[in-house]
Design a protein around this nucleic acid. Structure first.
Lengths: 236, 236
DNA sequence: AGCTGATTTGAGTGATCACTCAATGCTTGA
DNA sequence: TCAAGCATTGAGTGATCACTCAAATCAGCT
């Protein structure tokens, strides 16, 4: 009983299989069947949206616009809003972790790299009009009892990042940048706390100079570890 | 056309006008018309709920249960979910501010009080099974563009708290606990950042010992300010 | 051209959202 | 004892939620 008699306008969209929504090109090489969207592009769009609005405040309507996909396609590709968020969160985590890994794999001294990382985040956020705190922290704070899995996932990713930071401190110690008795676990925990606080201050809208100054203070505390005197925490 | 014939049980609730839900006392002094709920009790219930679940994830249904009020009563008393949240947020802010004020008004040295405050928060959170980060921070992170007022309010409360902290540092300086050149604005900002980070770590579920250790580290940094050497931040 | 099967579509699903209001019930003053 | 007046009630409002599925679309093959 579907009556199409009054459908005078049908929507027309062109989708290149690389995910760009360009008008159709005559050169269409198709193997099995190309997807008219690119999974990575879609995930990046979802990441940006979820990061900005949070899980609860982001509706399927928002996602449809951001991903340029209809609900059916979204569900075919990502199963559910919840599953999509988990995919996005993993993507965010992997990027953050890789960014930290380059600090260890880089050529310069690791301690200096950790300090510079703090300065770099502050500088980047200072110039970003859409400042936003760490997505893992946001997810953790936002996850309710009903979405325990989200919270647990965010926590485990945060733990993995802490481990990555500790690995960097351990390498610094092995390289002789830190005294042998340096407590790398404690240093990593404090470093991560500082980074969390720094990014929340960025989200808060702290003035550029103050933000960079805060990072500078934290960075110098890291660098001071190398000079020996503060390498181990104060005694209780 | 209301048929009550099959209502064999009617709910019975007794509400003292002080908000306690005690059985009716023969001594009911009523001036104009006693409210069967106490605004403060209701606000506390809403505070607990909103703090735990966040603004978006808390539904009117949740509030009806927590406040023991029907939707009509909630709207008569608080206008809207949004307005209720603002009232609750102010309540939270005032408590936090007052707690800080007692540090200044107390008898002991202010610097020691600030350090003890960090230790106290860590100890309190360590024993609280329902650990939760600062509600102002949560609100700020949760507020979307569509609820700009919520975010702005949270930010201004955070600013007010920073001012309160700075006032404490200024008093410490006036009392001779800090050197004259101590930068109280910078100290306050860092103190608040540390507190934010500490409470997020609590929310994260950091082990009790680690949480208390983190606070101890922060507290000793504050106390070290009094010994002169670290009173001003490292030079850039 | 026409068939085939993978893919996209978008109107529609029931549930739940924040919120309303006519009706009810209780307290008070007469 | 009762009328008046207001706080409380809770079923109901339209909107929006996450999500579904039959139909349309399109590339590749014959």
């Amino acid at each position: 009983m579907l009556d199409l008699s009054d459908h005078s306008i049908l929507s027309i969209r062109f989708c290149g299989k690389d995910g760009t929504f360009a008008p159709p090109s005559p050169i269409f090489r198709c193997m099995t069947r190309a997807r008219p969207y690119d999974r990575n592009v879609a995930l990046d769009a979802a990441l940006s949206l979820f990061w900005r609005k949070g899980y609860h405040a982001t509706s399927l309507k928002d996602l449809e616009v951001a991903l340029r996909m209809k609900p059916g396609s979204i569900y075919a590709a990502f199963d559910s809003k919840h599953a999509l968020y988990l995919s996005v969160l993993e993507r965010y985590f992997l990027r953050t972790r890789d960014e930290l890994r380059t600090l260890r794999d880089g050529s310069g001294p690791v301690l200096k790299g950790l300090a510079e990382h703090l300065r770099g985040v502050a500088r980047r956020e200072a110039h970003d009009p859409g400042r936003s705190a760490c997505m893992l922290v946001r997810t953790m704070l936002d996850a309710t009892a009903g979405e325990a899995e989200l919270g647990a996932r965010a926590r485990s990713y945060l733990d993995a990042i802490r481990d990555e930071i500790e690995a960097a401190f351990r390498q610094a110690r092995a390289d002789g940048e830190l005294p042998d008795q340096a407590d790398t676990a404690l240093l990593a925990q404090r470093y991560q706390s500082n980074m969390t606080a720094l990014r929340i201050e960025a989200h808060r809208g702290l003035g550029d100079a103050a933000l960079i100054g805060l990072a500078e203070q934290m960075a110098q505390e890291i660098e001071a570890l190398g000079s020996g005197r503060l390498a181990s925490p104060p005694k209780a």
